[in-house]
Design a protein around this nucleic acid. Sequence first.
DNA 1: AACCATATGTCAAGCGGTTAATATATGTGT
DNA 2: ACACATATATTAACCGCTTGACATATGGTT
Lengths: 325, 325
Amino acid sequence: MATIKDVAERVGVSVTTVSRVLNNRGYLSENLKRRVYEAMRELNYQPNELARSLFRKKSNIIGLIIPDISHPFFGEIARYVEYYAYKNKYKILLCNSQLNRSKEQEYLNMLKASQVDGIIMGSHTLDTKEFTKIDLPLVTLDRQLSESIPYVSADHYKGGVLAAKLLIRKGCRKIAHISGNLKLHLLAKTRYDGFMDTVIREKIPHVVVETDLNGFKYDQYGKIVENLFRDHPDIDGVFASSDVIAAQVLKECRRLGKEVPKDVKVVGFDGIKLGEYITPGLTTIRQPIKEIAKTSVQLLIDQINGKEVQRENILPVKLVEKETT
Amino acid sequence: MATIKDVAERVGVSVTTVSRVLNNRGYLSENLKRRVYEAMRELNYQPNELARSLFRKKSNIIGLIIPDISHPFFGEIARYVEYYAYKNKYKILLCNSQLNRSKEQEYLNMLKASQVDGIIMGSHTLDTKEFTKIDLPLVTLDRQLSESIPYVSADHYKGGVLAAKLLIRKGCRKIAHISGNLKLHLLAKTRYDGFMDTVIREKIPHVVVETDLNGFKYDQYGKIVENLFRDHPDIDGVFASSDVIAAQVLKECRRLGKEVPKDVKVVGFDGIKLGEYITPGLTTIRQPIKEIAKTSVQLLIDQINGKEVQRENILPVKLVEKETT
DNA sequence: AACCATATGTCAAGCGGTTAATATATGTGT
DNA sequence: ACACATATATTAACCGCTTGACATATGGTT
């Protein structure tokens, strides 16, 4: 690969001059610029970003840690994170933690060693201590981690309320909520709270299944739903904690001969494309995925630029009614 | 951030010595190693990978260019690419081209400037010339680009054959194939060939819709399917070029009052998780996504290490029969 | 006493850039 | 004639780390 020295030699100037053209500083004649750019093109030259980053102490790379890029929610998140990062001249280093503690830790170290300018965390199984040790601009996304780290998420509480209210309004007499891990995942807890506050206020019988599945073993949800309906055959409404799980519920309902929405009504959570692909169309609580991604990137870049940012960034959810309610 | 110099000072040795411990070269006493590692821990030191990469002329970064990470197929691909890259101590720089020519070109330049060790291309809208200009280890994935660049893909021809055969065996009398862009996408063409050779050999009436949709505008498929059934009401079998499109077909069938699989049988292509989430369960031609990713990574690393690699890497597909046939 | 493996040190150059300091030459307005 | 903006060059230091060359010291073999 051609270096700045090759360019300088070809033009017949010093590397300093070429560097000045590259960075557009000082006095530069049009003629000189033209000659330099021409030589760069001829040599197919690209400045070595490694060397630049080393000197500038800025890599223009953002680390993105998520549990699983193949999960549709994180796929859509990643798509928009990439979109907004690119717009701001940042690159994305992709890290899939698979919710594996040691992999998450290794990735955290790796990102630091790679001199990323900041990290967006959509996964965390580690203690807060590990994050403060990293000492890098940080934003958590769809996760609430500690008192000090800014986070971006949808309004899960409101989501729980909306889902419960809808099911009640549609005439459900006994509602199940399939929740995430309530201890580990603070946002799952607030969603649960929204749901509970509502069903209790309205005096609607309800049952909560806390799936302790640490991860994305979707095939196991069939069993969970089966048991749920076995123990509570009178359930006529289900609020699932994600659209993917809601899809599993629909599948299981069909297998058990329960018609949706006649016998059982189902509300999902996320608002991913999947909800549009399946039949019947899934009623869901839509998270503003694009805005979550946008805000996360913006908050991170603000931190990188030394600005103070707001800790709590909760974006509105929206009920999207389709055919399962 | 602590540097190697800080570590050296704390231990009371020279940076050369610390570097030697870091890289495990020359004679090193256990005692020295212990002291150095201890100081590193105390200072929370991580070697600066930028500096190392610059010196070594090796970044251990692989660029991954795909059209859209939120498309389930590429999401699953990316998940496994990341998995195998990580296993081999490589990091992934994620690039979403959105099938946008200029973004793809910019990313290509950016990756080169970033000194990635190689590129996996799952997207290409550019001419071969642009790629040869890059002069970097390269593998195309699910794409066939030129005579010289190694590619990894599923056996699309066989896929076309299997799908057609299945639909015929199930008694379909008129089969539609919704294909991709046959000029742009050589693999879509071979899949089409497999389909055509089979229906022609078996003398089955057929119709092909070539969707010129350059991208992933799925909502538009509803219209396409509607028109298809309007023009050919007697179609009783559909082979879609992806599972996502198959899902749209199912949705449209339902809207038009056509029962699947009774009135119309549907076969998808890809074998992504989506096929399991939807009801009825989608019959599809499964691409070995994990193996495609694994082979791509391996082929790229082999090239990085200066090995000669095979140009053509075609992996077997498998018919997965569910409820839509 | 000579030799060698072991263990550690110093020095300096190099990876590919950026930048500050300083020098020099030309044209231009006053 | 002087000041000043414009345009370019040279030199050297620096970013953080690696490496080769070379020096030195210790302990064990032969």
